[in-house]
Design a protein around this nucleic acid. Structure first.
Length: 894
DNA sequence: GGGGGAAGGATTC
DNA sequence: TCACGGAATCCTTCCCCC
C-alpha cells in the first residue's frame, strides 16, 4: 500500500515542532499536495493533546532527541584521522559496489491506487464523490482522494479524521473482498513474471526481464488487448460492464495515466508495443480491465528504485528509470531520504540532524555516517546513495513468527487477563496448526494504559503449537508481569502472544543430519534433532506431530500456493547435493534390505541421542518403514567417533560401500562391515588434517535449495547431478578461481558485494541458490560444457585429471560421502576459507551465503571497525532495507 | 570474547 | 462522547554463560 505509514511530517510548522514530528500530518503522499498543513496539524494536535497516547508519543520523541544528542556528541569527538580512515573504507566499498552494479534486470513495482478505498468505491458507486476511508474510528487503513484533500490518510485514527472531515464516510474493512481482487491482479502479474513477489494485497515486485525478451518475438495479436473484458465481479456486488463506466476513471480522472480509462471504450482493442514502458502499460491496462481499479508502477534496474518510482506518478501512472548509471545517480540526487523504503521517521530525523535530507547529501556524508551508525546501517545508506538495490526478487520467504494481539479497553482484573491470554493462545494455536508450524519461543506482548509496550519471551526446550503448551508458557510470563507491576494492578490495553523459533526454520542449520539419515526408511521429524533429544517428537506427540512426519516427496514441480505442506518437511530443506546424495545412499540401503536384512546396526544407543532421519524417497520406499522401536531408524550422532558402522552378518548378493562407493558382490556382512570400518579409518586419516575444513563444508551442505530447485530433482537420477548446481556465485564479489566455475564467470560478470550483516539463513540461502531460469537447462549446459575439460572438485578443491563426467561425479560423490562421515565423527570448528576458493564457490552454490557472510564479517569486524560496536548508534532496521532491496544484489544469471 | 537469548525499538503495509 | 491497530521482520543493546 502506498506510503501507508509515513505519518511523520517531513517538517512541522506548528509550535513545539521538535516534539511533534511523530504526531503531525505527513502530507508526503499522492493526493495531499497543497494542503493547509498548519490548520490540519492544529486539529490533530487539539484532538490528541493530553491523551495517554500523546504523552507517550512525546516521551518517545524525547528519547529520539536524546539519541540525536548522543550522536552529536560522538560526532564532536571524531578525529581527522578517523575520518580519513573512514573515507578510505567508504571509498573502497563504493568501488566494489560500483563494480558489482547490475543494470541488467528490469524490475517493476506495482502498487494499486488507494486499494481498499478503490474497491469499496467500485462496489458502492454512491461513495465515489464522497470523502471516504476504510477502517474504523480507531484506525484507518486508507482513504480516497477526496478525503486526502482534508488531510485524512492511512494510519490516522478515524475519530481524528472525522474532526478533519465531518462528512467522512468510514467503511469497515472487508479483507475477503480485497483478497479476491488481489488474486485477480496476481493472475496478471504471473503472466509477466511467474516468480513475482507479493508485498501485500496491493503491492508486488516483478522481474520482467525475461518477459521482455520473449515479447520482442511476439506477434501483434499477442500484444493486443480489448477494453472491458472483465466478466464477473469479485464479491458478487459489482455488476459488471454496464456499471463500469465512470467508476474507475472517476477515481483518478486527472491522473497521469488516465488514457487507459474505460469510459466509452468498450470493445476497442489496444495494441501495445514491445518496449518496457509498453509492457508495463499493458499490465496496468489489463489490471484495470479486469478489476476496474487502477495501479501505478515503477520501473527500474532494482527493487529499491522501482519502489520509489511507483510513487512518482501515482495514481494511475508509471515512471521508469532507464538502466544507466548516470540517470540513476541523477534520479537519486534530489530524492529525499524519507522517500526510500526503510527510512522511517526516526532515521529521517537523525539524518536531518546531521544536515542530511537528500540522497546526494547522504552520499557526501558517508564517512561520517560510517563512524556514527552501525555497519548494517551505513552500508544501507551507501547503497541508497548509489541507487543500488536488490536485483533479485525473492518470492516466498519462510515465515519466522506468528502472532495474534488484541487491543481493548482498560483491563485490570488478573482473572480476566489470564482468560484473554488463553483465548489468544487458542487462536494462535489454531493458526499455527493450520500452517503446520511449531515454535520454541513464546513471547507475550503487553501494552499498558500508558501505551508502554513490554515484551517477555521464553524459549522452551521443545517446539509447541497447542493452546495448552503455548498458554503454559504465556501464563507464566503474564504472572511474572502481574506480580512485578508496581503499583498494582497491571492495567492493560493490549495483549498479544507470539510464537517464533520455528523448528522448520531452525532445521536449516542441522540439515546435514538429513544426509546422515540416508539409511532411514519412512521419514521422521527433522525437527526432533534439537538440543533436547527426542523432545520435539515427545512434545509434538499425537496428531500434532503428524504435520512434521509427512512423507517427503521429491517434488519436481514448484509447489503451488495451495499446497500447504509445512515447509519444514519439504525437499526444500535439503540442498541439491544432499538430495542427490541421500537418494544415492538410500538406494544402497534398499539394496541391502532387498538382499535380506534391514538391521543396519548403526548405533545401539539410538534412544539417547538420536538423529531422526529424513527420507527423501518415502513415497517409493515406505514399505520398509521402521517401527521406530529399534535402532534401525536412527543414527547415533556419536557413533562414528569410533568406526562402528556395522551391518548385521548375512550374506548379501550386492552391496555398495557408502564410504568409497565400491560395489561388492556376494559378500557377507562381516566382511562388508570390516570393509566399511577400513574405509572409515582411511577416510578419517585422510581428513585428519582437514577436519575443520570439512566441518565448514558440512555447514555448506546444510544450506537450502531454492524453491525453484525442486525442478532439479528430476535430474537427480542423472550421473551429472553432482555438478549440476544451479548457483555458482559467491556473494563477496570474488571471481571464481577454479576451472570448474570459470566458464560461469562470463555469465556472471555483473555482481555486487552484499555487505549484509547477520543475514538470515533462510532468506540468504534461498536467495543464493536462486535458479529462476530453468535450472534443468543449467544441468544440460554444465554437463555439456564440462566435457573434455579438466574439472575441479567443488568439495575438496582438487583438480581432477579427467574430463569424464562419470568419473568426476564419482569423485564428488566420494568427497560428499566423506563429509557425511566427518559429520558422524563429531563437530568441527570453522576455519578460514580464504585459501579455498573452490569451497567458497561451493558455498555459494549451495546457497548458504549467510554463513559466508558470517565468516567474512568476523574478519571485517576484527579489521575495520573504527569504533567499538557498542559506541555505534543503532538506527535503521527494516524488512525492506538490505534484505529486500540490497541483499541478493548478487543475481544469479544462470 | 563470542554466541545466543531476551527485550526494546524501527519500519512496513 | 470516547477514542491512536495488527502482523511481521529485522536490528541493536544488554546480559549471561561457556
Amino acid at each position: 500500500m502506498e506510503d501507508h505509514h509515513q505519518d511523520a511530517a517531513v517538517s512541522v510548522s506548528c509550535s513545539g515542532a521538535d516534539l511533534l514530528s511523530r504526531i503531525a500530518l505527513n502530507d508526503n503522499k499522492a493526493g495531499m499536495e497543497g494542503l493547509d498543513r498548519d490548520k490540519i496539524n492544529k486539529v490533530i494536535l487539539e484532538t490528541s493533546k493530553g491523551s495517554k497516547f500523546y504523552e507517550n508519543e512525546l516521551k518517545k520523541e524525547r528519547q529520539v532527541n536524546q539519541r540525536i544528542e548522543k550522536m552529536m556528541e560522538q560526532k564532536a569527538r571524531i578525529t581527522k584521522e578517523q575520518m580519513k580512515q573512514a573515507q578510505a573504507e567508504v571509498d573502497k566499498l563504493k568501488c566494489e559496489l560500483e563494480r558489482g552494479r547490475d543494470l541488467g534486470r528490469v524490475i517493476v513495482h506495482v502498487d494499486m491506487d488507494a486499494f481498499y478505498a478503490a474497491v469499496e468505491m467500485r462496489d458502492c458507486p454512491e461513495l465515489k464523490d464522497k470523502p471516504m476511508a476504510v477502517g474504523s474510528m480507531s484506525m484507518l487503513s486508507t482513504s480516497n482522494y477526496h478525503a486526502r484533500r482534508f488531510g485524512v490518510r492511512a494510519a490516522m485514527p478515524g475519530f481524528i479524521a472525522k474532526k478533519l472531515c465531518p462528512n467522512l464516510v468510514i467503511m469497515p474493512t472487508n479483507f475477503d473482498k480485497y483478497r479476491a481482487v488481489s488474486a485477480k491482479v496476481r493472475e496478471i502479474f504471473s503472466e509477466y513474471d511467474p516468480h513475482f513477489m507479493t508485498v501485500s494485497l496491493d503491492e508486488a515486485y516483478l522481474d520482467i526481464t525475461e518477459h521482455l525478451e520473449q515479447r520482442k518475438l511476439w506477434p501483434e495479436s499477442m500484444r493486443t488487448h480489448h477494453m472491458c473484458d472483465a466478466k464477473t465481479d469479485d464479491a458478487g456486488r459489482f455488476a459488471g460492464e454496464s456499471e463500469k463506466d465512470g467508476l474507475s476513471p472517476v477515481l483518478f480522472e486527472d491522473s497521469p495515466g488516465s488514457s487507459t480509462s474505460l469510459s466509452g471504450a468498450e470493445g476497442k482493442a489496444e495494441v501495445f508495443g514491445t518496449s518496457v514502458e509498453e509492457a508495463v502499460r499493458e499490465m496496468r491496462f489489463r489490471i484495470e480491465q479486469k478489476t476496474t481499479l487502477t495501479a501505478s508502477a515503477g520501473i527500474a534496474p532494482n527493487m529499491m528504485l522501482a519502489k520509489v518510482c511507483s510513487d512518482k506518478n501515482k495514481p494511475n501512472g508509471q515512471y521508469r528509470i532507464p538502466p544507466e548509471r548516470q540517470v540513476v545517480m541523477e534520479f537519486m540526487k534530489d530524492l529525499p531520504v524519507r522517500k526510500v523504503s526503510g527510512v522511517g521517521k526516526v532515521t529521517e530525523k537523525m539524518l536531518a540532524a546531521l544536515g542530511i535530507v537528500s540522497c546526494a547529501q547522504l552520499g557526501q556524508q558517508m564517512a561520517l555516517l560510517s563512524l556514527l551508525f552501525s555497519e548494517t546501517s551505513w552500508h544501507h545508506f551507501l547503497h541508497i546513495s548509489l541507487g543500488l538495490g536488490s536485483t533479485y526478487i525473492e518470492r516466498d520467504s519462510e515465515r519466522k513468527s506468528m502472532s495474534t494481539e488484541r487491543t481493548f479497553g482498560e483491563m485490570s482484573d488478573a482473572e480476566e487477563q489470564y482468560s484473554l491470554c488463553k483465548e489468544l493462545c487458542h487462536d494462535l494455536a489454531q493458526d499455527l496448526q493450520r500452517e503446520g508450524l511449531k515454535g520454541k519461543t513464546v513471547t507475550l506482548k503487553l501494552k499498558n494504559v500508558n501505551f508502554e509496550v513490554k515484551t517477555k519471551a521464553f524459549t522452551l526446550q521443545y517446539a509447541v503449537c497447542t493452546e495448552e503448551d503455548i498458554f503454559a508458557a504465556a501464563k507464566d510470563l503474564l504472572k511474572a508481569e502481574i506480580d512485578s507491576v508496581s503499583p498494582p494492578p497491571l492495567k492493560l490495553r493490549l495483549m498479544g502472544v507470539r510464537v517464533s523459533g520455528f523448528i522448520s526454520v531452525e532445521n536449516k542449520k542441522p540439515l546435514q543430519r538429513s544426509i546422515m539419515g540416508f539409511l532411514q526408511k519412512g521419514g521422521s521429524d527433522p525437527g526432533s534433532f534439537t538440543q533436547c533429544p527426542g523432545s520435539a517428537l515427545k512434545a509434538g506427540g499425537g496428531s500434532d506431530s503428524a504435520s512434521f512426519l509427512k512423507p517427503q516427496s521429491t517434488e519436481i514441480k514448484v509447489p503451488s500456493v495451495s499446497e500447504q505442506i509445512p515447509k519444514s518437511t519439504g525437499p526444500k530443506q535439503q540442498s541439491f547435493f544432499q538430495r542427490a546424495q541421500s537418494k544415492r545412499l538410500q538406494q544402497q540401503q534398499e539394496q541391502i534390505i532387498i538382499s535380506g536384512t534391514d538391521t543396519t546396526n548403526i548405533s545401539a544407543d539410538a534412544a539417547a541421542s538420536t538423529l531422526p532421519i529424513t527420507n527423501p524417497q518415502s513415497d517409493t520406499t515406505s514399505t520398509n518403514t521402521n517401527s521406530g522401536t529399534d535402532a534401525t531408524g536412527y543414527i547415533n550422532k556419536h557413533a562414528t567417533l569410533k568406526p562402528s558402522f556395522k551391518i548385521s552378518t548375512q550374506v548379501l548378493q550386492f552391496l555398495t560401500c557408502p564410504v568409497c562407493n565400491r560395489e561388492m558382490r556376494d559378500v557377507n556382512l562381516t566382511a562388508f562391515n570390516h570393509h566399511i570400518d577400513e574405509c572409515l579409518k582411511g577416510s578419517a586419516m585422510d581428513n585428519e588434517h582437514t577436519d575443520s575444513d570439512a566441518g565448514e563444508r558440512k555447514e555448506e551442505l546444510n544450506s537450502e535449495p531454492p524453491a525453484s530447485s525442486h525442478k532439479l530433482s528430476c535430474d537427480e537420477e542423472k550421473p551429472s547431478t553432482s555438478i549440476s548446481l544451479p548457483v555458482v556465485e559467491t556473494d563477496d564479489g570474488n571471481d571464481f578461481k577454479t576451472p570448474f566455475f570459470s566458464h560461469r564467470k562470463k555469465i556472471n560478470e555483473k555482481r555486487s558485494v552484499v555487505p549484509n550483516k547477520k543475514r538470515p539463513l533462510s532468506e540468504s540461502s534461498s536467495k543464493a541458490s536462486h535458479t529462476k531460469h530453468n535450472p534443468a537447462a543449467v544441468v544440460t549446459e554444465l554437463s555439456s560444457d564440462l566435457k573434455g575439460s579438466s574439472l575441479t572438485c567443488p568439495v575438496c578443491s582438487q583438480l581432477q585429471s579427467t574430463g569424464d563426467l562419470a568419473l568426476f561425479n564419482r569423485h564428488v560423490d566420494m568427497c560428499l560421502n566423506q563429509e557425511v562421515l566427518l559429520e558422524f565423527r563429531g563437530s568441527h570448528p570453522p576455519v578460514d576459507h580464504s585459501d579455498a576458493p573452490a569451497l567458497e564457490s561451493v558455498r555459494g552454490q549451495l546457497g548458504d551465503q549467510g554463513r559466508v557472510s558470517k565468516v567474512r564479517e568476523k574478519s571485517k569486524r576484527q579489521g575495520s571497525s573504527l569504533l567499538p560496536p557498542a559506541k555505534k548508534s543503532k538506527v535503521l532496521s527494516t524488512k525492506h532495507t538490505i534484505d529486500k532491496f540490497f541483499k541478493g544484489n548478487t543475481r544469479q544469471n544462470v
